[in-house]
Design a binder for these strands. Sequence first.
DNA 1: CTGTTAGCGCATTCAT
DNA 2: ATGAATGCGCTAACAG
Lengths: 374, 374
Amino acid sequence: MVRRQVPLSPRSCSLALEFHLLRRLRSSVRDDTRSTIRDVARLAGVGTTTVSRVINGGQLVAPDVRLRVEDVIRQLRYQPNLAARSLKNERTRTVGLIVPRITDPFYATIASVAQDICRAREHILILSTSLDMEEQELQELRIFEQHRVDGLLIVPPKKQSVAFQEYCHQLRTPAVAIDLPFEQDGLASVLTDNREAMANATRHLIEHGRKRILCLVSDPVLYTMRERVRGYIEAITAAALPLLVEGEIHTAAQAEQVLLFALSAPDPIDAVLCANSTLVIFVYEALQKHGIRLPTQLALIGFDDFHLAGTLRPAIANIAQPAEEIGRAATNLLFSMMNDRQQSPVHLHLPSRLIPRESCGCLTADPISSGRVV
Amino acid sequence: MVRRQVPLSPRSCSLALEFHLLRRLRSSVRDDTRSTIRDVARLAGVGTTTVSRVINGGQLVAPDVRLRVEDVIRQLRYQPNLAARSLKNERTRTVGLIVPRITDPFYATIASVAQDICRAREHILILSTSLDMEEQELQELRIFEQHRVDGLLIVPPKKQSVAFQEYCHQLRTPAVAIDLPFEQDGLASVLTDNREAMANATRHLIEHGRKRILCLVSDPVLYTMRERVRGYIEAITAAALPLLVEGEIHTAAQAEQVLLFALSAPDPIDAVLCANSTLVIFVYEALQKHGIRLPTQLALIGFDDFHLAGTLRPAIANIAQPAEEIGRAATNLLFSMMNDRQQSPVHLHLPSRLIPRESCGCLTADPISSGRVV
DNA sequence: CTGTTAGCGCATTCAT
DNA sequence: ATGAATGCGCTAACAG
């Protein structure tokens, strides 16, 4: 069944023989080496092109030949070597993702969605984490470039140096920034509309009749935090209420102190808005500790919903970021950029959703667990 | 500075010229193409071998030449193409990870640790999710093989068909199973010691004087669940107490019903042990709803610690799986297997840790948030 | 319809 | 110390 090839010259003859021998040796002595397209071709008595055609859709191949080749492929458990294919195609079918931490549910959700879309498009997802350190992020970017990933999904570091921005700017790979923009840059991005989300939450509290609303922030320098505070200020100003912002709250003790002070003032606060989920837990624990009742004495809303926020009693109202939508939009955008390299950078701002629960004054019984299945 | 190469034959001459022209064209018309080792060589006036040497450690190269080459590399922003390197080396410096869901904190932690170790060893981590479906897992495995990953870290599907086991068995890539073993197989694995963990928790309740301890399970068929129940039975039997196991609890309603029944029996239970974290939340909510006091009326311990377990009042005692240790052990084991392909399969059972909190009868005040920083 | 062949970018022998 | 030549596995011209 194997057609003999007529050697064209002594040289190619000896080479072919050597090669043949080597292969035979390999496959008999150890099964460590994988079979190649040539092994398949030889065993099926066809040329490599034909095998290649069979692998890639099987058009233009006689049905009987195709069957024979497919048979050999199964026999040999032949798997095409994607590295070789990449080398030829200049496409690796690979997407790189950089997040600060994969253990953060927000980023995990994004990674999950990204992976789903990649799979559907027959790409693989390379995961890496930066711990929000610019240096590490740069290094990962370099490695991704060496791997020639076809696209990049990255959460930029919270503080971006000029060097970093320059590096991103001259990136040859299509890239989409997630959660934070590339500062002052023409690179695509998909973000939560932090400002609008916070303004909404503020208005919600105002509608509940709250007049003195305290806004608690960890690091006011960060882009996300700045935006959130902007939203708060916007809504408060529009309602002609007093601005009460407290920044640089990093520990439970600080939160507790600020809270007690603001509550014992001659004109005490009647609501608290936290710019992230750690803060809201600090506040919640402090209130619990001092027996301050939610929502009668104080209303409370946090940023970033978390598991069990609805299980706690009283349940905590939160602004839920649209993590899935962000992941989906970013990944789809990335693929469209990969297909059309010239398109101008898109910037998406996706809306958040306020989840009212007991703590904000909405007396929604929160039947979180009913219907859930293990 | 560029040394002329003397063409050896008309043929190679025309080829070299063509090539040269092509390159020139590319780099002038569009900067889409990346520079190769040959561009660097030409610009530095050296051979590709020398460049290659400079890239890989720079030994055996004259210092001045090295500097010159390094300079050109920077100028051109040359990045070695790892696909090409893989083709030559037969190693991709790539590790594949398959987990059911990356949004599960347990798996996210494992992924995080795995990624750290990979980075340290100059490998990249390819992430994929199986949703615990065998078919999907098989497909991912096939893709990983095509990418020629150097090693595989996988959480096998909960139910493994014979076909799946065979496939894994003949895998040419070193692989470590996480969380679940490959059934009846010689493949390496790193697992929580579920049996021991559950036995410990049971003994803990017994030491607290509990006599009628109910064990709640979701799907008793699954390996992990079986092991946990075994641990419970072991400890209960050793103490000559009554075995009270209830399986197939999948919803909050079922949990509630079972609980109320067991509490209103003539000989009511005085403790509940849940075989997973969803169950413990079901139970917790049911108890809350019916005003049953923890831990006076009933003691409660769950399996798998979760964020906020210590923040709830009363705080929930849990068995904490050593997720980080599992990830670390599995990844390190994998790398050692990658370096020594012949070593016989290792099976590691890592101990869990019981985190006593109010719900089990230990009146530990749980200062979870003190000292934490945003 | 099918086979031959030339690279893709790199590391590596083997000369020098 | 350095370079020319070769081939890793695959795809795509280009012939037949």
